[in-house]
Amino acid sequence: MDQNGTIKEPIIVCRDVHKWYGDFHVLRGIDMNVTPGEVVVICGPSGSGKSTFIRCMNRLEEHQQGDIVIDGIELTHDVRNISEIRREVGMVFQQFNLFPHLTVLDNITLAPINVRKWKRERAEELAMEWLTRVGIPEQANKYPGQLSGGQQQRVAIARTLTMQPKILLFDEPTSALDPEMIKEVLDVMIELAGLGMTMLCVTHEMGFARAVANRVAMFDHGQIVEENDPESFFNNPQHERTKLFLSQILNH
């Protein structure tokens, strides 16, 4: 329910999602619904399946059991469904994954031109708009190798947003950054949350979670052990595993 009391249809529906890597059971029945505009932060120890879970959202990983429905489209083996979902779901990676052989501007306009079939002018216009918003319009004609980590990650965010996705997935976007660059990326993410973007973030930035998340979900051994609003999650964790995890990442 939002502030007006109307019930929004969820844009992401996950029902009993399972995945195995060989014999290793990574995801053991994940249920999660996300409504448009919601910001969900996913945390948990490494190996708990949180990255795998969000990578299932756009079929970078294949789930083997259960249903994932994104924006009314079921994620199946049908390549048409997969392409359609990937067009509407953007992803920001831990390692940025910019294309090193293309300039910043070409990195951003590549997908709008080739996937959305926009004219170059339109793509470039929107690309510059986003580059300005993330604060680095002057870097448009440089190559990714010439930028700092924080700048690269902001380019990656601009690249994703120029595709005008309905959902954004963040896979530990600040983990590969130097401490002083984390803030510049988080500021951009906070601004996006303010714009009403639907976001699913795997992150250990608890400050970010407190500030903008609607919900925080705790993963452990491929299951969601606790899911709550940030206030209750941080101040009054219910599960033993959550308490341990929070004590480990907050008190050092």
Binding site: V89, F93, N97, L110, A111, V115, T160
Partner: peptide, 22 residues
């Protein structure tokens, strides 16, 4: 790197485009 392929896929590029452009 595998990340390049993942980024291309995440942006919705088709397999042929990924090979040719990235």
């Amino acid at each position: 790197s595998k990340g390049q392929t993942e980024a291309a896929r995440a942006l919705g590029l088709l397999e042929g485009q990924r090979l040719q452009l990235i």
